[in-house]
C-alpha cells in the first residue's frame, strides 16, 4: 500500500501527465539557461535541496537521500518540458507528492518570514536546473 503510494507515479508510463505539458516554457526567464549553474543548484542543500531526497551522479556529495528516485538518467526518461513541469509543481502529477513545488509563491501555509512571497527557485533557476537535468542521460 505504502510502496504503491510512493512508487506509483515514478515510472514514465504512470507519471505521464494527464494534461498536456507545453513544449515551450511558460516561464519568462530573463536570460538563456545555464546548465552548469543548474548543477550547482541541484547539489546545494540550501538552494535546490534536491539531494535531501534524491540521489544521483554527484560523487562529491557525501550524503544523499533515498526518499525519491535517483536523478541519474532523468534526461532519458523525460523531455525538458516534463522535467520543467515537475519542478514548477509536482502536485499536478501526484497530489500526495513530497517533492516541494519549486515555482509556487502562494498557497503554502505558515511560510517562514524569510521565505514568504517567494518561490523556492526563480524562473531562471528553474530553466537552469531543467537544462542540467536534460543532460543526465543513461
Amino acid at each position: 500500500m505504502l510502496a504503491a503510494l510512493f512508487l506509483g507515479g515514478v515510472g514514465p508510463a504512470a507519471a505521464q501527465p494527464a494534461m498536456p505539458v507545453p513544449e515551450a516554457s511558460p516561464l519568462a526567464a530573463a536570460r538563456p539557461p545555464d546548465p552548469e549553474n543548474g548543477r550547482r543548484i541541484v547539489v546545494d542543500r540550501r538552494r535546490g535541496l534536491c539531494l535531501l531526497c534524491h540521489s544521483g551522479p554527484f560523487p562529491e556529495v557525501r550524503f544523499q537521500g533515498d526518499l525519491a528516485p535517483s536523478l541519474a538518467g532523468a534526461g532519458s526518461r523525460w523531455t525538458p518540458a516534463q522535467l520543467r513541469a515537475r519542478l514548477i509543481d509536482s502536485r499536478q502529477f501526484n497530489g500526495e507528492t513530497i517533492m516541494p513545488p519549486y515555482f509556487r509563491a502562494e498557497g503554502q501555509i505558515r511560510v517562514g518570514r524569510a521565505f514568504s512571497g517567494r518561490s523556492i527557485l526563480t524562473a531562471e533557476e528553474i530553466e537552469d536546473v531543467t537544462a542540467f537535468l536534460a543532460t543526465l542521460r543513461d
Partner: peptide, 23 residues
C-alpha cells in the same frame, strides 16, 4: 502541509520513516 516546502509531519514521520533524508 506547512511552509515553503509544503510538507507535513506525517509525510516524513509516518510515510517515510526509516528512509534517509540526506544521510
Amino acid at each position: 502541509r506547512f511552509g515553503q516546502l509544503d510538507l507535513s509531519c506525517a509525510q516524513c514521520h509516518s510515510q517515510n520513516w526509516g528512509r534517509s533524508l540526506a544521510g
